[in-house]
Write a protein that binds this DNA or RNA. Sequence first.
RNA 1: GCUCCCUUCGUCUAGAGGCCCAGGACAUAGCCCUCUCAAGGCUGUAACACGGGUUCGAAUCCCGUAGGGAGCGCCA
Length: 480
Amino acid sequence: MVRCAPPWQTIRDSMTVVTRFAPSPTGMLHVGGVRTALFSWLYARRMGGKFILRVEDTDRERSTDEAVRVILDGMAWLGLTADEGPYYQTQRFDRYGAVIGQMLAAGQAYHCYCTKEELEAVRAEQTARKEKPRYPGTCRHGRAPRPGVQPVVRFRNPAQGSVVVEDLVHGSVTFQNAELDDLIIARSDGTPTYNFCVVVDDWDMGVTHVIRGDDHLNNTPRQMNMLLALGAALPTYAHVPMILGPDGAKLSKRHGAVSVLQYEEEGYLPDALLNYLVRLGWAHGDQEVFTREEMIAAFDIKDVNRAASAFNPEKLLWLNQQHMMRATPATLVPHLRAQLRRIGLDCDDQALLEGIILAQRERAKTMKEMALNSRFFFAEHVEIDPKAAAKHLGGGGRETLQRVRERLAGLGGWSTEAIHGALEALAAELGAGLGKVAQPVRVAVTGAAVSPPIDVTLALLGRERTLARLDAAMAAGSGA
RNA sequence: GCUCCCUUCGUCUAGAGGCCCAGGACAUAGCCCUCUCAAGGCUGUAACACGGGUUCGAAUCCCGUAGGGAGCGCCA
């Protein structure tokens, strides 16, 4: 992970766009984070720039390996490949320490000997007075070290003037420096804090466009002040709105705030998830379905909306099916195989799997659902749904099955056309509609009253299995 | 409480002063197609948060109000 010559020190083209996704592994990567990552990735791709992945793990207490794994695997599954990284902040502590030392020496930062208890007391008073809780500046103008107190380091924020954030999605936002207090950049144990690390990292890595959740908009002026103090160039900011749960409330575990990998398990296609997420807060005319290439070609961070949007599972489902129906069957085969394996079915017959995909994709919203609906193709014996049997195998049902069996057994070829012709001819002889013949066969062969067209179903199933199941259904019927 | 942000159909959105008694999509209702279920096609219900301005004219500009969100941490 550690490299001798970090790329940002060798490649330094100020003209190219550099974006980054900097998740913190304190919680699972969910759709909210993924969308921010997507916007950064898309923008870099669109501008022919670079996309960096950086893991913000400065909070060693709350960071977990599991969360890091989900970030890495999730990004890989989605195909949001980084041009650099992953970098880890915990491996850059020396660098942060050096910058802090430099700022201390320059008077841009200072030691603060106030204890947590003292500060909490001050905050309590301020809140009681209905004031904004803030650091009172006790140590700002120098203070003798206090025995037994390990000091923190605070950034000396300008007291006067204002900072204007020229945000790509919000426009200009002005903050008064008087509203900003001196934030802690190093804890008493010496470890640097988030707001400081991002600043150093984005600076070192040459990030030109900071695209992140709008919960960071309030942090931006302080970060800009630090960048200014360091003599660094300011990046362009774009604060994208957050995603709400389907109920309009904050994204919760109940819906949405689950690991992205959950969507893989549920049978969603990466392109469909990405397509869904890009349309949350962004649009390109009336277009709903986008391929990756189309997204890259049409995307611009400037077109992103300012308002938060609610996650809608139904539309994701619809889009997933749209992508399933537009994909080349062969590209879906690995997905189908994986889902079949989950339910204990192993099949490596490429032609059969492609045939099933073609037959099933317009009646399944996810690859998981497709696998579930296709079990009868592989099972040794089918369990016949009693309700379906009662409806279609009673009365003359069994007699119909016998006649179908005779026709199919003597059929010259085993194609959808041949099967279709035989069943239709039989229906005509019986003076009934195709349904009168197809439904009993469907129930006998699939166990249910629902399946792809009967000719397609039988063709895929094969003559041997078809006849065996017709026999089994007739035998079961006579026994009852 | 203070600071900042946000507000078009149930949901995602188009709309950058007249093209809008507001368009598309999901969902929903009905119809068509049809061997089942789907997919597909057609039709319908449904929105500019509210109040003032500016203007010949406002969803679009300005000011308020209300509601929602974020930040105010030795969390990120």
